[in-house]
Structures are given as structure tokens and as C-alpha cells.
Amino acid sequence: MSAAPRRVLGIDPGSRVTGFGVIDILGQQRHYVASGCIRAPENATLTVRIRTILDGIAEVVSLHQPSEAAVEKVFVNVNPASTLLLGQARGAALSALVLARLEIAEYTALQVKQSVVGNGHAAKEQVQAMVVRLLKLNGTPQADAADALAVALCHANHSHSAALQALTAGGVRLRRGRLG
């Protein structure tokens, strides 16, 4: 009997555009499920932006039924107002995930880029190219959707490593890549 895949929802929060990416993980394999962007209307009030993100994430969760989620952490920007807006958007996304009772992991942009590209200072285009390659996509997703897929891939890599560390800490050994 084979194990069921884990479904991960990756989120790249933004006050105007929030990217999402859904992948399935089965062992070392990663399979693309869906991706896209949740867009707040132009010149929308804060209330409308937050509602758009909250409702959009809730809809993605309802449609794709992820078992876990990963969100990019906010970095401190030069502009405090922009940082605050980004934090509010991230809070709306986190709230939707909490209401859906999903476990949430958080990763910095540096961690995501390091995990997916191998370079923590990679350009957005490099991240997009690696997402296409790793998920064997026919086309290139929008930048925000590609970033969200990269967050999901980072979580897949980190959670796999954490699971192996937990197993080996419990006395299980790896021999030639297999549990022994």
C-alpha cells in the first residue's frame, strides 16, 4: 500500500497581489497542482484588501484541500508604511490558514531562494526558472505565483529533512538512502 501524497499550499503575501501555489509531495517527488494570484482591486481600502486576501485564501483552501501551508516571512522594508501594509496582508493570509485549521510553516525569502535555487540572493527570474524545472511545468507562472510555489517547494525540502532528522534521532538509521 502506498502512502497518500501530502498537499502543501505555499503563500507569497502582498498587499496588492498575493501569490499561491499548491503542490503534492510523495517521497522525493513534487507535483504541481495549481497556482495563481489573488488581486485586490486598484485603489481598494484596507478593509477590501484584507477581505480579498482572506476570502481568496479560503477559496483556494476549500478547492484544493491542502494538509499543510507555508508562508513567506515579512522582511523589514526601507519604507515603514509598505512594511506595515505587507504585514497586514500576511496577517490576513495567516488568519485564513488558521481558520482552516492548517499547520503553518514560515520561511524567509533567503531560505526559500537557498532551498529552491541554491543561492539565497537569486533573482526572481532564477526562482521562476527553477520552479518550472523542478515541477516540470510547460510554461512560466507569474512572478508572485512562482514565488508561492517556491515557498511550497522550500517547505517540502525542509519538512522532509526534519522528518528524517526525527527518525534518525529516534534510533532509526539511514543506509544508502533507505531506512534501516
Results as ranks from 00 to 15, higher is better:
A4L: 13
R7H: 07
R7A: 11
L9I: 14
G10M: 14
P13F: 08
G14D: 13
S15N: 01
R16D: 05
V17Q: 13
V17F: 08
T18R: 13
G19Q: 14
V22T: 09
V22W: 01
I23R: 04
D24T: 13
L26I: 08
G27F: 04
Q28K: 12
Q29H: 00
H31D: 11
Y32M: 01
A34V: 15
S35M: 14
G36Y: 12
P41E: 02
E42C: 12
T45M: 03
T45Y: 01
I50R: 07
I50D: 06
I50S: 08
R51H: 08
I53L: 06
L54M: 10
D55N: 14
G56T: 13
I57R: 08
A58T: 11
A58C: 04
A58Q: 07
A58W: 08
V60I: 15
V61D: 08
S62Q: 14
S62A: 15
A69I: 03
A69V: 05
A70D: 05
V71N: 03
V71E: 05
V71Y: 01
N77W: 09
N79Y: 07
L85K: 12
L85A: 12
L86W: 05
G87N: 06
R90C: 03
G91D: 11
A92W: 00
A92Q: 07
A92P: 09
A93H: 12
L94R: 09
V98Y: 15
V98C: 15
L99T: 00
L99S: 13
A100Y: 06
A105C: 02
A105F: 09
E106R: 14
Y107L: 10
T108G: 13
T108K: 01
K113L: 05
K113E: 13
V116S: 04
V117D: 02
G118C: 03
G120F: 09
H121C: 06
K124D: 03
E125S: 07
V127K: 05
V127C: 04
V127P: 10
Q128N: 07
M130F: 00
R133V: 09
L135T: 09
K136W: 03
N138G: 15
N138Q: 15
G139K: 03
G139A: 07
G139Y: 01
P141F: 11
Q142A: 09
Q142C: 06
A143I: 15
D147G: 10
A148Y: 14
A148S: 13
L149Y: 12
A150H: 12
V151C: 11
A152R: 12
L153V: 12
H155W: 10
H155C: 08
A156D: 01
N157P: 06
S161H: 01
A163P: 04
L164N: 01
L167S: 03
T168D: 00
T168W: 06
A169E: 01
G170C: 03
G170K: 00
R173Y: 00
R173V: 04
L174K: 11
R176D: 15
R176N: 15
G177C: 10
G177K: 14
G180Y: 02
